[in-house]
Design a protein around this nucleic acid. Sequence first.
DNA 1: ATAATTTTTTAGATTTGTCTAAAAATAATT
DNA 2: AATTATTTTTAGACAAATCTAAAAAATTAT
Lengths: 221, 221
Amino acid sequence: MQSNFTSTEENYIKAIYHLQQPDGSVTTNELSAKLHTRPATVTDMLKKLKAKKLLHYEPYKVFQLSPEGKKVALTIIRRHRLWEFFLVEKLAFGWDEVHEVAEELEHVGSKKLVDKLDAFLGFPKFDPHGDPIPDSNGKMSIIQQICLTELPLHKPAQVVSVGSQANELLELLSHKSIAIGTKLEIKKKFAFDGSVELKVKNLAPVNISEQLAKALFVKPL
Amino acid sequence: MQSNFTSTEENYIKAIYHLQQPDGSVTTNELSAKLHTRPATVTDMLKKLKAKKLLHYEPYKVFQLSPEGKKVALTIIRRHRLWEFFLVEKLAFGWDEVHEVAEELEHVGSKKLVDKLDAFLGFPKFDPHGDPIPDSNGKMSIIQQICLTELPLHKPAQVVSVGSQANELLELLSHKSIAIGTKLEIKKKFAFDGSVELKVKNLAPVNISEQLAKALFVKPL
DNA sequence: ATAATTTTTTAGATTTGTCTAAAAATAATT
DNA sequence: AATTATTTTTAGACAAATCTAAAAAATTAT
């Protein structure tokens, strides 16, 4: 009864899931870019995933996961986010250095392991990046979060997630002393370049670029 | 600076290490049997490991790990035993059901992960089967343990390790209520079949076969 | 609507880890 | 010592995941 897909297949499934969120479909080129493989390689895998009934796919058309594929994706995401939580909460990793390691741990498939880990961690609902952790049935909590660019001036809010796990982003955030849970408010918006001036309690105001603001998601308080 | 061997290579290295203990050398057939692959397949891998300077090997001769190979083996064994400890102590796995899962986790190579896990667990010296855990330099504690077959009559002793992790063995031990740490003594030895009668405090005497006695290692108290 | 461009797929090759069958080397027997 | 048996290696093939180069389909532009 254990899933039994290769790590490679799992990586494709996960990538398709993320690209098709919330309800769209995905193209060969998008997936090829995300996984850093050539389009020809992607095509081969699409045929394999279709044969395993995980994917709705017809040649030259856009594609999306089947319900079974989506279920598999959620179990992989569950494993990934539980391990991230473990690494930060128990092993004292920085929240910006867990992604690569979790990327490996997520492919250990034992359901018993994952469920016991979940229990050991106290059934956490969100990972250290603020992303929801699916439970053993694939259900996730939804956070009402908005992009920092949509936060009104002077409205207190708390950072709940970041738009990607790119190292460059995480490095910049740590440099600016911004992390999940940081409470902040916007003091000023600059129309010229879209940059905004943030105020975090006890810290000097910082100016962040529009790109960075777009990668931050907050919950108004 | 991360090792960077494939899981398959790591499995060969580990198997060679165990077969060559304490100082002997290994044959193609032995390794083939241990890994359930054909001798021809083993030969291919031996050439690859030799090319990577992990193995002393000449065609048609017995072989053994080079010092570098041994170092790699010890890091794999370290990972395996730390994860076994984690699974039993933190996730409440039975000590007889952790082997397969640890077999997967051991291939996650991040040194930082392993060292932080080690610290989280309190730098344990022995895994749940009583086997010593190498430290981050590859050093292991040695236990002065003897085989149960060598334990004198009426000498109290404590089980410290088992000869293999075969499921059949672990099942039998759990049926007989014998585990690592169990204190026992031998009440009688039967010359006819080598079986022995054991007494564990608060339990009725049990008779165990010679095969089983050979798989149990104890520390006289 | 036809031509040009982009996207996607097909075809053929490569690497890793495996296999079977046959050949070569070593070990055991008579 | 010569023959037989066993062990090990070589040779050739296959599946998985990747690549490059070329062909086919779809999209965009003129």
